[in-house]
Design a binder for these strands. Structure first.
Lengths: 224, 224
DNA sequence: ATGCATTTGGTACGGCGGTACCATGAAGAG
DNA sequence: CTCTTCATGGTACCGCCGTACCAAATGCAT
């Protein structure tokens, strides 16, 4: 036989190509031939490893999730060892914003898959629907822990705030994507709410990050 | 000539069909033949009134906007004559949630168009991008007015809260669409934030708002 | 009535996209 | 060495979709 190949690795490579081309031209516009060309393989190969386009899309979503998880992990690691609840939440939220090319792709494709799943029950049945729930639970737990430690306002409802933070992040991400809002504006809004939820007492030593209290609408009245 | 027909009316009828079928099968899956069948006309007719599919989609978006505006207006009217800022905002937000079939269609299609506009510059150039900005300005103004009247906490930044409310509404709408969240949950979160922003009192609060109330903050004066 | 512009219908064409089929090269097993 | 099995390539088929073309019915002006 020819050089025995690791199928999983091959699939990942092709899925990567799918993510790239879909991030550029949009998920709706991507075809199997595009993916094959982007991956530098023949159309037949894509068929060989994923029998159908549906399978390819499923795998692409799963791959996307893994990559995003890694992205959040990297941001967390960059926030130092054992970051507090606030830093953890902030890392998660900021990693979800399309502030760089990778984030742009993530947000665009996640949103695309979400919208598709509304009218495509095969996609809706995919277990990626649990992901938002997991994030919500995680943030809720982090806020609750901070409350118990006295680092967060005990007067707020942890789950409500978790839902709110994640929801705001998602929509503002789309706003950034369509060019309606600047990333700094979105970050400002999120930090504002984090400041509201978390009382000042917490680590987050001299990172030297600039802080602005509330500066929505980054550029101001500009263009258009 | 054959019975002189009102082109605008015809276009609206066909656009209505587009909205219906797209609301069912998804915007990505709709074809000109589907629209024609749904409208009960021939494919040629759709071509006649909209030369290209692109035109049809543009018109469909515009039509959608008009219908949504009417929906909000109806909700406002149902809220009684001269509703206060909070009732106005609440009507706008709740009208945006997919709590009924009409709302479901609105939210699904708006989201679809938004995502499409990220990778389709022809759509992005369409003036529907101004709509979110208009809503943001409107809500900001309403909050600021309430603040001046003493009906809203002067300690919050009007624009930041407006952005937050609208952003939360949009994402939670999608969550409802995919079956992840119940409408009551979304409404509860929104009401929670409205309660936070709007004090129970109206103008000339005797006891005044408790907690920090920094200096007077003019209407929507953004820092920065 | 004649004619002409408007409205509508049916259908064909070109292209593209997903899937299926056939073929071939490359190793490991015997 | 041969045979089998995996991996890969090329290509053809079928269907759908947007668009274009041909043609007919219709009603107002002359």
């Amino acid at each position: 036989m020819p050089k025995r190949v690791d199928h999983e690795e091959r699939r990942a490579q092709i899925a990567e190509a799918l993510v790239r081309v879909a991030g550029r031209r949009g998920l709706h516009a991507v075809g199997m031939r595009d993916v094959a060309a982007e991956a530098g393989v023949s159309l037949r190969l894509v068929q060989y490893y994923f029998q159908t386009k549906e399978n390819l899309l499923f795998y692409g979503l799963q791959h996307l999730t893994e990559r995003f998880t890694a992205r959040v992990g990297a941001r967390l690691a960059a926030a130092g060892p054992d970051p507090g609840p606030r830093a953890t939440i902030e890392a998660l939220l900021l990693a979800s914003l399309p502030t760089d090319e990778e984030g742009r792709t993530f947000h665009l494709l996640y949103s695309s898959y979400s919208i598709l799943s509304v009218t495509d029950e095969a996609l809706a049945a995919q277990p990626f629907i649990d992901n938002p729930n997991a994030a919500e639970d995680a943030v809720t737990g982090l806020i609750a822990r901070a409350q118990e430690a006295g680092a967060a306002d005990r007067g707020v409802d942890a789950r409500t705030e978790a839902i709110s933070l994640l929801a705001m992040t998602a929509t503002m991400g789309t706003s950034i994507l369509v060019g309606q809002r600047e990333p700094e504006s979105a970050i400002g809004v999120l930090r504002h709410h984090l400041d509201r939820i978390f009382t000042g007492q917490e680590r987050d030593g001299g990172g030297g990050a600039d802080e602005e209290s509330s500066g929505p609408r980054g550029g101001g009245a500009g263009a258009r």
